[in-house]
């Protein structure tokens, strides 16, 4: 009985600790949201209280003075295009590499995998030069192509690992029935890869949506800015006008928050699966 009491006490203590930790984790976002509805004057007098009057003025200004919708659309377009490319080229390569048991296959796989060790900063300078020379610099589609190049090794690695655990019988049966390699892949294999495709889409969407340095190096035209680039620009412009800056930051976070609220189960699972497999 005594032991049970102490264990209840222990659990309560842990629960309280975790609630505090969770609040601490959320507090920066909550404070930013709260203060984004206040005027600058109110921020300076009492930062911790709820706004006396919830005003959307900061959001209206932020919305008017920024290309918010344009940047949002640019980012969605960039991420979709990149994901589409990564999934197509990597599923083809990863699947075939796992199914072909030749020396060549091993070499190609090795070359793909080795690049996962190279930090981005070590290819950055050469990348800027080659993108400039090939005229892909300055375009969102160009940026997407680069993301496919950089993102495919990891995706190939995951597709490769997943394919190894699918039985071959279905494919062999289809080939005997006279199916060619192309239809075999699109009609039969690709649907079977769905679970790992979901993981790859989640991991790469997170990466590309939040990537800052590559767009910074590649995009100069304001109309093509991603959400992060325009946020960074505005942050500089509204130097310490915090009520407006906070509204801009919350607007930049909004898509992420909405997606996370509705998809958190899949996202956490995708990240977990991806981490374990690689």
């Amino acid at each position: 009985m005594k032991r049970k009491l102490s264990s209840i006490f222990f659990i309560t203590l842990l629960t309280i600790f975790m609630i505090i930790a969770a609040l601490f984790t959320l507090s920066p976002i909550l404070l930013a949201v709260m203060n984004s509805f206040k005027s600058n004057g109110e921020i300076y007098t009492n930062i911790l209280s709820l706004p006396t009057k919830w005003s959307f003025d900061n959001y209206v200004t932020a919305f008017k003075n920024t290309n918010y919708l344009q940047s949002l659309f640019n980012t969605i377009w960039l991420v979709s295009l990149s994901l589409f490319g990564i999934v197509i080229v990597s599923s083809m390569a990863g699947y075939k590499l796992a199914r072909t048991k030749t020396k060549l296959s091993k070499y190609i796989f090795g070359i793909f995998v080795i690049s996962m060790l190279i930090p981005f900063h070590s290819i950055m300078i050469g990348l800027v030069k080659v993108s400039h020379d090939l005229h892909v610099q300055g375009h969102l589609w160009g940026l997407a192509i680069i993301y496919v190049g950089i993102g495919s090794p990891m995706a190939i690695f995951l597709y490769h690992g997943f394919t190894k655990n699918i039985p071959r019988e279905i494919e062999e049966a289809a080939l005997i029935d006279g199916c060619n390699q192309f239809t075999l892949f699109t009609k039969i294999v690709f649907p079977m890869l769905k679970p790992i495709t979901a993981t790859i889409v989640i991991l790469n969407a997170l990466w590309i949506w939040n990537d800052f340095l590559l767009p910074l190096l590649m995009i100069t035209d304001k109309d093509k800015y991603t959400l992060l680039l325009s946020t960074k620009m505005l942050f500089g412009q509204y130097n310490s006008d915090w009520s407006k800056i906070l509204a801009i930051l919350i607007l930049a976070l909004l898509p992420v928050i909405i997606v996370y609220v509705f998809m958190q189960k899949y996202i956490v699972k995708g990240v977990s699966d991806g981490a374990i497999k690689s």
Binding site: I118, M124, I125, G126, V130, I150, P153
Partner: peptide
């Protein structure tokens, strides 16, 4: 976009 810039 990876190998050539890396070797470069």
């Amino acid at each position: 976009f990876v190998l050539y810039p890396a070797l470069g």
